[in-house]
Design a protein around this nucleic acid. Structure first.
Length: 780
DNA sequence: GTAGGGTTAG
């Protein structure tokens, strides 16, 4: 009634009823009503302006709050020491350092910067806008500080991610004689989570119990969160169960904690329990916390149902949740669903783009990853360390040294030359691109090496055929006191397999379970299957695969297939190929391997049958191709390729080398019927792509320089032998990277120390692709 | 009438 009269007649600013009504509206958050009343005040005073600005800030309408302040200035109304904390808070809410800084400058002129409330707001504003140095300066120069000043500074450091500084500040505060209250404790506990120091966390926990606020829900929730983030889930559980009252934040903390500590089942169960026990429905944050659990379980159906819940409950669009869903789809192998969601997202930021780049890379879509990376680079958002660490494996997969060096240069240029994540990726990239020395150089240069760094360098030597060196590095790693993890043993067992170290392989397989309490995963079983296959004890290999507690993948059966090929056991090869084709009907390698075995046994009808089958499945034998990089140019050669501009010189060198290494001009390959030989000139080992590439390398590089050739399929026995000889007669080191490992040929010997077989892609357990995904999983 | 706090994506 009175409001209506005021609207009709207008009101002078000094009516105390008007002010009280305005306060009530603002206090209750009825800002539309407050605004209508305010508009009818003829000359609002500073207090009334302040009420409006505070009202908007409290509702989270920072833009409106800031506009009101600007309008106030425009109207010539003097701002007072109460105005500024609200305005500064609105700048913090808008994440606008520039506006905040301008206000700060104005404050200094009018002398309000000495006000403790103003100073405290400035500290938080600078911390929230990412300028911790400014916050520190304000704190240092304050003429007087209260507990809020200290708490703001502790919280500011924690927000900045500098847990140690926050803890130091917390300690300093107490030494100063200021009692830690619940605000200080919450910030200090967040700091403990950041530095993962359960020791400091427990000290603060004791303080909480001593000081008499142990039943504060927020403090308890922060404690639950801290113990989880420090890896102590049991403590969190205990604390959580002893809580008098729990709200959704407490439940979410525990659920997130389970997911963080690789307890996906508990995470999912707890989200159900929350609904049953406390009748609390999941919110968007609950879903964000549960999604990684689905990813860990590769639980696509659970993940999909969470996506559906998010839509049904109206949680979308919500950037954080959408990013978590993209990540879940990617980790469950559903890159297409991840992509669809990403494309539909109305808002994107660096984190969501990074998630999509990683999604592509994890699923082998490296070209798309690079495309997104380049688009990001062209835009206004600058890639960060995570972007670069995510994209490097895509360049590694390309296996081109030139582009690999480019991305290394890019990382350095962007100031990440000492970032452990990135350097780990670079070690992998150089190893994958064939430059083992560069990989070693990076490892040597690192100031801080983590488990991933060691795992990667061990794997680097393994994929270059130096299994024994790998094991030596593993010993060094243990001597340095680093605790190996599951990925370490993938590297170690791969090394044993590559070097043919059977006894050691078994020893490490047992040791990882007994000494390190690590359950072997499919990759570890793969390594042992491969190792057993190598010993030629097919029965043992077969029974190992059949008895293993996990379902064998096609890759694991591939180890047995190669083993049966080596032992020329056609029956076993046939039955194993059947198992592989049941899992992967388009596995070209299987058909080609069987066909070659039949040819060796002169079973031409079966050879024809294989060819017919491949035709029926529309499969084509992978065309052998070799790549060599000369003066930043990439040259590809196919078998019997004559398209290169230097083809005549290459041929001359080829003939010369053939003579020198004692090969006849024409040898009859075993794999073709006599009448097919003319037709299959291209398949003569003498003109295999790898030799053409080597010859081109010999004439295009300085005498004595090493030659690096990459091949898409495995090098054949003939070429493997020939390259040994070529390395001897030319005195060059020749490095050949095939689909399995790198061979270092020097002075008539090869690093791999064993003969190889051709064409079979997914045959071994230690292919780089598999390792890459593990490395990435460890990263994120 | 002012300032500081817990769960959240790569």
């Amino acid at each position: 009634m009175r409001h209506a009269t005021i609207i009709k007649n207008g009101s002078p600013s000094f009516d105390p009823f008007v002010t009280r009504l305005l306060c009530s509206y603002a206090y209750l958050g009825y800002m539309a009503d407050a605004l209508r009343l305010f508009d009818n005040i003829s000359n609002p005073d500073t207090f009334q302006w302040n009420v409006m600005i505070k009202g908007y800030v409290d509702k989270g309408f920072f833009e409106e709050a800031f506009e009101f302040y600007q309008l106030m200035q425009f109207m010539g109304v003097r701002a007072d020491n109460y105005t500024f904390p609200f305005v500064i808070k609105s700048c913090a809410g808008l994440c606008s350092f520039v506006e905040g800084w301008k206000i700060h400058c104005r404050l200094i002129k009018v002398g309000f910067d000495l006000d403790v409330y103003v100073g405290n707001s400035l500290i938080t504003m600078y911390a929230k806008t990412g300028c911790i140095d400014f916050a520190e300066k304000v704190f240092d120069e304050m003429p007087m500080r209260d507990s809020v000043s200290w708490n703001s500074m502790i919280g500011g450091y924690a927000l900045d991610g500098d847990g140690w500084k926050a803890l130091l500040c917390f300690q300093e505060m107490m030494e100063f004689g200021i009692e830690a209250d619940r605000f200080s404790v919450i910030s200090a506990l967040t700091a403990c989570s950041l530095v993962k120091s359960v020791k400091h966390g427990m000290e603060i926990h004791c303080h909480v119990i001593r000081c008499g606020f142990p039943s504060d829900v927020m403090v308890q929730t922060t404690l639950v969160d801290m113990y989880c983030k420090c890896g102590n889930v049991a403590f969190s559980e205990h604390l959580f169960n002893s809580m008098f009252q729990r709200n959704i934040v407490a439940w979410n903390s525990l659920i997130g904690g389970y997911a963080l500590n690789d307890h996906p089942h508990e995470a999912l169960l707890t989200s159900v329990e929350m609904q049953e026990r406390d009748k609390i429905n999941p919110d968007a944050i609950t879903l964000v916390n549960v999604l990684p659990a689905c990813a860990q379980l590769r639980g696509l159906s659970q993940g999909k149902s969470i996506h559906a819940t998010a839509i049904r409950r109206g949680f979308l669009p919500f950037l954080v949740l959408e990013t978590a869903i993209v990540d879940m789809y990617a980790k469950c192998g559903e890159v297409r669903s991840a992509e669809q969601l990403f494309e539909q997202m109305t808002e994107k930021n660096l984190i969501s783009c990074n998630a999509m780049i990683a999604a592509y890379v994890q699923n082998g879509q490296n070209k798309k990853a690079m495309e997104l990376f380049h688009n990001l680079e062209k835009g206004s958002v600058k890639p960060d360390a995570v972007t670069i660490a995510s994209i490097i494996p895509a360049y590694a997969e390309l296996a081109l040294l030139r582009t690999g060096r480019q991305i290394h240069g890019y990382a350095t240029k962007n100031g990440y030359s000492s970032n452990t994540f990135i350097l780990n990726s670079l070690i992998y990239m150089y190893a994958k691109c064939g430059d083992l020395q560069a990989a070693q150089r990076i490892f040597d240069s690192m100031l801080f090496r983590d488990v991933v760094s060691w795992n990667t360098i061990i794997m680097a030597y393994a994929i270059h055929g130096f299994g024994r060196t790998s094991i030596e590095i593993f010993t060094q790693m243990q001597e340095k006191g680093l605790k190996p993890n599951g990925s370490t043993f993938v590297s170690v067992l791969s090394s044993c397999s590559i070097a043919g170290m059977v006894d050691e392989g078994w020893m490490y397989f047992n040791s990882m379970q007994q000494d390190y309490n690590i359950n072997p995963q499919i990759e570890h079983y793969g390594c042992i299957a491969d190792l057993l296959g190598r010993t030629g004890d097919l029965e043992k290999a077969e029974s190992f695969i059949q008895d293993m507690p996990l379902v064998p993948t096609s890759r694991i059966w591939g180890s047995l297939l190669v083993a049966s090929r080596n032992a020329r056991n056609i029956e076993l090869a046939e039955s194993t190929a059947e198992r592989i084709l049941a899992l992967e009907h388009d596995n070209t390698g299987c058909y080609v391997l069987l066909s070659n075995m039949y040819a060796e046994a002169k079973r031409w009808e079966d050879v024809d049958r294989m060819r017919a089958l491949m035709k029926k499945e529309s499969l084509e034998k992978t065309r052998g191709c070799s790549i060599i990089e000369i003066n930043s140019l990439t040259c590809s050669f196919f078998n019997n390729d004559t398209s290169h501009i230097e083809t005549n010189t290459i041929r001359e060198v080829l003939d010369l080398l053939s003579q020198k290494i004692g090969e006849g001009i024409r040898t009859t390959p075993i794999k073709f019927k006599p009448r097919d030989i003319l037709r299959t000139e291209a398949s003569l080992p003498r003109s295999h792509s790898v030799r053409l590439a080597i010859c081109f390398g010999l004439i295009s590089t300085t005498v004595g320089a090493p030659i690096l050739v990459k091949k898409n399929i495995r090098i054949c026995d003939d070429c493997h032998h020939a390259v040994k000889m070529i390395s001897k007669v030319t005195g060059r080191e020749i490095i050949i990277g095939d689909s399995r490992i790198y061979h270092h040929f020097r002075d008539g010997l090869c690093s791999c120390g064993c003969s190889t077989l051709d064409v079979i892609h997914s045959s071994t357990s230690m292919t780089l692709q598999g390792y890459q995904s593990r490395v990435q999983m460890t990263h994120h």
